[in-house]
């Protein structure tokens, strides 16, 4: 009995190994499985097929083993099988720009991200990473602002990320440019929601501007920075602390810069 088990335990792996070493294999051809073919045979289990294909693609993505065309095709295929499945969108958006073997990596990432914004289930990571790609790789602050704002509106976004998204472009050196961007968005907006969001951002930036000016005047008159925005009211530099259109609190950094924090953090 034991002898039989040993023979099998040895014979099977040896036979497998010999077969693999000597077998003549057909040249590998990249398989572009048509979407309709999968849909015909998967009995409506598109989501499960998309999930399984995605797990396999995700691990291969950085290596691009079958070329970038196949990679782009697979991402599109998974998106088509399950358009609401958010992970392929945000993962591809943030990873693709770093894949050196892909000649059009940033364009591909933006394309996947935009598709995700249009089709995916609400997931803050899709617009947020698209905003990040626009900022880091394309230096397009207008598009970045638009997508960060979209991420900030998505349910389930962590408070720190929401604050980051709403605070995009509030630093003194970029505040003017950001205001111009939101003014342009407001002027060109066709729908009420975009117009309203642009107005909120403009108001938000104007409040920061107002508070920053008051801090500068305070410094000139007293020789030190105020420790809180309420000090500006107490000392009569402003009548009241304006309310943030995004429900945020304002605070003052040690160097006198205005910052934002969630209302709940006091």
């Amino acid at each position: 009995m034991a002898c039989g088990v040993v023979i099998f335990a040895v014979a099977i792996p040896v036979a497998q190994s010999v077969h693999d070493s000597f077998v003549v294999r057909a040249p590998k051809v990249i398989d572009f499985t048509p979407l309709s073919f999968i849909k015909v045979f998967d009995l409506g289990l598109h989501e499960a097929v998309a999930a399984i294909r995605w797990v396999s693609l995700r691990s291969d993505m950085p290596l691009v083993p079958d070329g970038y065309e196949k990679l782009d095709y697979e991402i599109r295929l998974i998106n088509s099988l399950d358009p609401r499945f958010s992970q392929p969108y945000y993962f591809s958006t943030i990873v693709l720009p770093e894949i050196q073997k892909h000649p059009y990596r940033v364009q591909a990432a933006v394309e996947v991200g935009k598709r995700g914004v249009r089709l995916s289930e609400p997931d803050w990571r899709v617009p947020f990473y698209l905003g990040a790609v626009n900022h880091v790789y394309l230096r397009d602050r207008g598009e970045a602002a638009k997508y960060f704002d979209l991420a900030a509106q998505t349910t389930g976004i962590p408070e720190s990320i929401r604050r980051f998204s709403l605070g995009y472009g509030i630093a003194p050196k970029s505040r003017g440019e950001m205001k111009e961007i939101w003014l342009a968005i407001e002027a060109g907006a066709n729908d009420k929601d975009t117009k309203k969001r642009a107005e909120m951002h403009i108001r938000h930036l104007e409040i920061i501007e107002l508070l920053q000016d008051a801090v500068s005047t305070y410094r000139e008159e007293t020789g030190s920075f105020p420790s809180a925005v309420e000090d500006l009211v107490k000392e009569g530099f402003i009548a009241e602390v304006p309310k943030s259109p995004f429900g945020l609190n304002f605070f003052i950094y040690e160097g006198g810069l205005i910052g934002i924090k969630p209302l709940s953090s006091g």
Binding site: L43, L45, E47, A48, A50, A51, I52, W54, V55, D82, R84, F85, S86, Q87, E121
Partner: peptide, 26 residues
């Protein structure tokens, strides 16, 4: 095990599980 590969995405776990119930049911 699939949940470990899903990187916290519960939708993948659900798709996989519901598909299994359907196929085994058929």
């Amino acid at each position: 095990f699939f949940a470990r590969l899903a990187l916290g995405d519960v939708s993948m776990v659900k798709s996989f599980g519901l598909a299994g119930i359907y196929v085994c049911g058929v």
